[in-house]
Every structure is written in structure tokens, then in C-alpha cells.
Design a protein around this nucleic acid. Sequence first.
DNA 1: TATTAATTTCTGTTTTAACTGAAACAACTG
DNA 2: CAGTTGTTTCAGTTAAAACAGAAATTAATA
Lengths: 182, 182
Amino acid sequence: MNMYNSAMILNPVAQRFILHWGEMGSKWGVNRTVAQVHALLYFVGKPMPADEITETLGVARSNVSNSLKELQNWNLIQVVHIMGDRRDHFTTSSDVWVLFKTVVHERKEREFDPTISVLRDCLESPDLDKEDAEAQQRIKEALGFMEVLSTWGDQMLKLEPSTLMKVLKLGSKIKDLLSLAK
Amino acid sequence: MNMYNSAMILNPVAQRFILHWGEMGSKWGVNRTVAQVHALLYFVGKPMPADEITETLGVARSNVSNSLKELQNWNLIQVVHIMGDRRDHFTTSSDVWVLFKTVVHERKEREFDPTISVLRDCLESPDLDKEDAEAQQRIKEALGFMEVLSTWGDQMLKLEPSTLMKVLKLGSKIKDLLSLAK
DNA sequence: TATTAATTTCTGTTTTAACTGAAACAACTG
DNA sequence: CAGTTGTTTCAGTTAAAACAGAAATTAATA
């Protein structure tokens, strides 16, 4: 055990929030515990040591350890230290925009960009030449689509959150501005 | 068995494309076979009967049956019939934009919107009042964020693919237009 | 440097989802 | 309506991921 007293009591709303976030994660290919740990840190809004997370969520210590590592790999949490406490404490940004941008950036790098590479490879392969031209065209279109989306994503990620917000709020009114652009 | 001859031979490029698409699906919470079946239909660009899909992918017939059903639930494939052939044939749009919009629309309805509901419930719950105001504020910000994204998504989905394409191509130049907007 | 605290790694178990093959069902054909 | 073709459902199996608990490692303290 540990010299500190652990286990934070979560009220029902916090539980609902954290559990739902975990399920949401599962549906998007994120480990449930990982999502729960992050939701917890976001909810409490202050740094927590691993043991406290463990007891609060009621999962194994090692599970928390791995989840924290995973979240660090995703740049979603940071380690901080509390004066007079040897333990690592973990915290996450309370700015949803920052979190969102981080996730989009990471997923793009890990999953989107590699897919673009594969499609490029496919098009360059001599095996495709023998194939009918239409299939080649479809791969080309899929690639073009992903490239447009990728470039756009990069540019959006560079915007200030407040600017990005304005863009989103603009919504489909952007259509009207389109004629002005050139 | 079946009175027709099945099994389409896939060249290495097609295989690479389909297998990668399957792995990609897994990482985003989509069943691998489901993703593969869809990739195959996209690649071949013409209607295929279930048996031919089965033999081409080398998976169980029932697996294909369930995958096709799933893809129909997602509105990603359609059933068509070929003159003189009793079997159902399945086909998917060759327009990546249409496919993308379909997926975004469905996922939004299934996973995004329900989460918004949960967050609203959380905020309305009397249990949260007792909680510190900052946690409440964070939930509120998460909700606000998701609502903005949701509204924006709905509006983007309504745009013509060609218009949407222009918006994406505009990229961060949109920043300059922002001052003109009101 | 011995002791304790804190964290990670490892191995085995559990859980969940995917998948198969067979049986049931439905639709069509002669 | 008997036989055939095509599709779906279902029960059981397999495979993959998540998770737990113990052991090992690292780091801090005294």
C-alpha cells in the first residue's frame, strides 16, 4: 500500500460521465480504461496520483499504469509533482479544444497518413497497370479525397482555438463567402 | 454450392488495399470483415453476390451475410438484381464523398448525439449542484464544444460535395474571409 | 547502503468480439 | 408441391484484447 490515503468518492454524475466516456472510447477504438482515466482527470481538474486513480475507478494498479503511459504517448496528460510528495501526479488540460486538437493530430499521424501512403503505393505498383482503368481511377479518387482532408486538417489544427471556433460557428454561411474568395 | 462460378481473383494491389482497409476499420471501431467487404465492393465497382464475396475474401458465408447486413444498416451498400440471376447482388457508391458523408452522418447519430444527451442529463442532475462549480463548468464546456461541432457537422453534411470540396480547399485562407463575415 | 515507497513489467486469466459451420428458413422453379 | 437455390439465424469455437496480481525494477530517503 501507500502512506497516503487514497480513493476519491465520485458522485453519481461523475460516475455517469466517466463510464459513458469509457463506452464512447470503446466504439472509437480507444481502450475503455484509458478513456475512463482521462475522463476522470478531466472531471476532477487537478493532478492525481496513480494509486488514487486506481482506487477511484476500481481497476488494477497495472491497468492504470498502462493507461497512463498510453495517455502520455497520446500527449493527453502530463506528469506534475506536488511539494512534499514523491509520487507522480497526472493531469490533463481543462481546455476541450486543446484536447480535441491533440487527438485529431495524433490520430491523423498514426492512422490517416499511413493510409495515404498505402494508397500512393497502390497507385505506383506495376500490378495495377494491368488492372482495369476504372479501379485505378477509384483508388486515385480515394487518395485525392484523403489528401484534401489531410491538408485541410493540418491547416485547421494550426488555427487558434478562438479562430477555429468562429469558423465552425460560421457553418454553412461559409457558402456565401465562397464567391468572394479567389 | 451454387450454379454459378464464384471466386474473383484479386491482384496484389487489390489485396493490399482491401487488407489495409480492414485494419484501418479495426482501429476505428469497425469490424474488420465489414470494412473488407466494403473495400472489395468499392474496388471492383460492380455488384457482387454474397457467395462471390465469400470466396474472394476467404471468410465464412455467414460472416459475409452479417457484414452485408451491417453495411446495409449503415446505408453504405445497396442491393441490386441482375437479369436472369436470382441472387442478391451488393454494390456501393463509387463516390468517396457520398461514402464519407454517409459514415459521418451515421456515426454522429449513433455515437455523438447520444453523448450530447448524456452531458445534458449530467448538467441537469441535482447531484451536480452539490459538486464544486468548476467540475460543472468543465462538463458545460465539453457539452458546448460538442454542440458546436454537431451543428457544424449537420450544416456541412447538407452542402453539395462540390461546395464542401471548395470549403476544404479554402483551408486556412478562410481566416481572411472571417473579418468580412457578420 | 539498507529500507521503504512508487512504478513498471510480466505472466496468466478473463472478457469480449469475431468468426465458423451447420441447421433452419425463405424464395423461387419446374 | 417437391426440389433446388439462396439467405439468415444460431450455437459453439477461436482469436484478440483487456485486465489482474505478483514479481521485478527503479528511485528516493534515512
